[in-house]
């Protein structure tokens, strides 16, 4: 190209060509892509809708059936077969509260202890530590009825031989949710960066001082969240309790070591729901509402706790 003038038309041609190429690139995507995008988004939305519909149906159905039975009697009165209009959940509520208190007493020290060992002390390059880890993951997936059988064989009878008492039920539920607590606590411990541990150790703190004063305080919100979620799971469990002696019909307030029997909310709901009379059906539905409210409150508290106190690094 010697002279600019001579090459001008050719330049113009090149500019036009480049422009049209750019235009083509910016134009709408092919029709097939648009449809595929829309279909996929629709399917995902459908999945969310199905998940929500189940919960919504449960709440609506329970409310429609149980609203007539909603009254303070539900909480203050014991169950009764003769007077369904006066019957309530008092022994079951007290039993459930004692059960989850026992679960917490057991699960907090043991669960956190196991998590601390696995995260802070165990050398994960050793095969036995990896085996323990895998097994804890597996334990969390074992069906609850199997824990019921375990509780019956080892806690109610067998080595511990506690008999059909509330404490035995508590211990069984604690074993059931223990893996959940361990897994959640490990997550919380793992979220504490190593730089904090090293900073503490470099100041001449021992490993235990480091854990007690740095690692544990920083991970307590996460651990507490895990414990609450685990306890709310224990609160809703029915199957293992039936095996370890939660009697379905108790009219007195249970005690932890009383041998006369005890009950729990889900067990009592099950009992009412089995009866054909309309009034008992309404009572069962009202009981479901009470439990849903309690569970939602517990889970919301767990979420709030996590958002409010979680340490951001």
């Amino acid at each position: 190209m010697e002279a600019g003038r001579a090459t001008a038309p050719r330049n113009r041609l090149a500019v036009a060509g480049a422009r049209s190429t750019t235009e083509a690139m910016l134009r709408n995507q092919p029709r097939g892509d648009v449809i595929r995008n829309a279909v996929f988004a629709g399917l995902l939305l459908l999945a969310v809708a199905i998940a929500l519909a189940g919960l919504l149906a449960l709440v609506i159905q329970a409310f429609a059936k149980g609203s007539s039975a909603l009254s303070l009697n539900l909480i203050t009165n014991p169950p009764s077969t003769a007077f369904p209009e006066k019957a309530g959940y008092r022994p079951a509520i007290i039993g459930s509260l004692q059960l989850i208190a026992g679960v917490m007493l057991f699960v907090v020290p043991v669960g956190i202890g196991a998590a601390l060992y696995l995260e802070e002390y165990a050398d994960s390059s050793r095969w036995w530590n990896r085996l323990i880890e895998v097994n804890i993951q597996n334990l969390a997936a074992v069906p609850s009825i199997i824990y019921g059988i375990l509780g019956l064989a080892f806690i109610v009878r067998g080595p511990l031989d506690l008999g059909f008492i509330l404490a035995a039920g508590s211990l069984t539920l604690a074993l059931l949710v223990l893996p959940m607590v361990i897994i959640a606590s490990r997550e919380a411990l793992r979220a504490v960066p190593d730089s904090i541990r090293q900073g503490s150790l470099a100041l001449g703190a021992t490993q235990w001082q480091t854990i007690r004063t740095q690692v544990l305080p920083a991970s307590i919100p996460g651990i507490a969240t895990g414990v609450i979620l685990a306890v709310s799971r224990a609160l809703g469990e029915t199957a293992p309790l039936l095996l370890v002696g939660a009697t379905v019909f108790v009219t007195f307030d249970p005690t932890p070591f009383g041998t006369d029997g005890y009950s729990a909310m889900p067990v009592q709901i099950f009992n009412y729901a089995l009866r054909p009379q309309e009034e008992f059906q309404a009572l069962a539905a009202a009981g479901i509402l009470v439990m849903l409210v309690v569970l939602l409150a517990m889970n919301s508290f767990a979420i709030w706790l996590r958002n409010r106190y979680e340490q951001r690094w």
């Binding site: 960066p193 730089s195 904090i196 090293q198 900073g199 503490s200 150790l201 470099a202 100041l203 001449g204 703190a205 021992t206 001082q209 004063t213 740095q214 920083a218 340490q311 690094w313």
Partner: peptide
């Protein structure tokens, strides 16, 4: 490590107050 201290590449203060950060070492000792 009490005699030979260390400062790291990335500042790693503890998630505590300024006072408690400095007091941590003397306290654990």
């Amino acid at each position: 490590r009490k005699l030979i201290g260390m400062v790291f590449q990335k500042p790693n203060p503890f998630p505590k107050s300024i006072y408690d950060n400095v007091a941590f070492g003397p306290r654990v000792l």
